[in-house]
Design a protein around this nucleic acid. Structure first.
Lengths: 220, 220
DNA sequence: ACCGCGGTCGTGAAATTTTCCCGGCACCGG
DNA sequence: CCGGTGCCGGGAAAATTTCACGACCGCGGT
């Protein structure tokens, strides 16, 4: 064990949560919080300045989301260690985060020890996953629910995104320079591939898989 | 001012957030956290035991949600003071919470002082609303977006709920002992009344208005 | 009692959309 | 070159959505 304290940066848009992190982490000797950010771009800036040993990051944040923030941090510093700590008990998010380069995924419902434990794991290079997420992942595998992104071609996925965001078939057709007919065909094909019967199921699936996050709904 | 410390109960399913509350509140003299609960039923039990001056409560919790928890607490003790502190920057939730009897609604993105301030307001009998929610409310009024529940008749609302939850028109028809034709008519009428063109917009509206919460999506 | 009104339920027919099957085109690996 | 796959759209049948209409019921006012 090294003598020097390991440095940590906190990234969460809720001040109260950052306070909570601090209260939990400062009980642990050998850890020191050296920076706090409330969104992705601030996190990037502060990372450059302070170069912490570990970043603890939430996923849902204004501006660029947590996933994108992870990607950018890893792009800048391949060895950056980022532990995701979020309320989303959603396997799809965990998969995305790990793919983006996260060193671990812990949900906020976990007991305080779990966070400390995960921090230690991450610092020593291990990947830490919450038991509840492990379970979710296992379930989704068992259910054979494949990720929409894997199942659909790029074109189909694009149309799906627009269906969820835009309004009518015709608008999508114009935006993509396609015949309305083709969009309708794709719409039908997508539902077929994803195994849903109605548009409402489609939206629900998209939400489960994190294609459409709640946050997206508010903007528009 | 009374000499005795005002007592507070924290209700939030995320341990880290409760830690955060504590760190923020203990800086304030005259406040004392006397109980912590992680869900609605536990909150109810502890309220009976400890009878705090103020309850700080999150909305999204396992089991009975925060809104229902507020209702039950107020039912037991009409004078209970409950301050909602949540991540949901959603006017519809705020309206529901206040109607259920909450003494205030503050979002987690608010600066720490805002929470302390709201706590003081609530303790002195005032109703505290976050500026961002005020703004949301104003916007929704301006947009003339009426609550779906007000706009629809009981029957229509029932069908809407089932559309969002169940699957096909035929299944709803059977469950409600209606002709499939009638359900289709209602479906059409609902979209007309709510001013949406597609089912996808319908789901998004339902999410905005809190008719369908994200949590509902996971269960089923 | 009578009326008007709003909500509910259903029918039928037209308009639109969804679905299904098809062919053409381009690209890629064997 | 050929088979497989993705992409783009046409056409026609099938299903759904929409619209107009009528009937019933409960309710309050006159």
């Amino acid at each position: 064990m090294s003598n020097a304290a390991r440095t940590i940066m906190l990234v969460d848009d809720h001040a109260v949560v950052r306070e909570g992190y601090r209260a939990m982490l400062q009980k642990q000797p050998g850890l020191r919080v050296v920076a706090e950010a409330s969104d992705g771009v601030e996190a990037y800036r502060l990372y450059k300045e302070t170069g912490p040993d570990l970043v603890i990051m939430d996923l849902s944040m204004p501006g660029i989301g947590g996933i994108e923030a992870i990607r950018r941090l890893k792009q800048r510093d391949k060895r950056a260690k980022i532990l995701v700590f979020t309320m989303h008990q959603n396997a799809a998010f965990a998969v995305q985060a790990i793919r983006a380069g996260a060193s671990g995924y812990v949900t906020k419902t976990s007991p305080p020890e779990a966070l400390v434990h995960a921090v230690m794991d991450a610092l020593s290079g291990k990947i830490a996953i919450s038991p509840d997420i492990d379970h979710e992942l296992a379930l989704s595998r068992l259910a054979g629910e494949r990720a929409a992104a894997d199942l659909l071609t790029a074109r189909e996925f694009e149309v799906l995104r627009m269906l969820l965001a835009e309004k009518t078939t015709d608008e999508i057709a114009e935006a993509l320079h396609l015949s309305p007919k083709t969009v309708a065909n794709l719409h039908s094909l997508i539902k077929d591939k994803l195994g849903v019967g109605t548009d409402i199921e489609l939206v629900r699936l998209a939400l489960r898989q994190g294609i459409l996050t709640q946050l997206d709904l508010r903007e528009q």
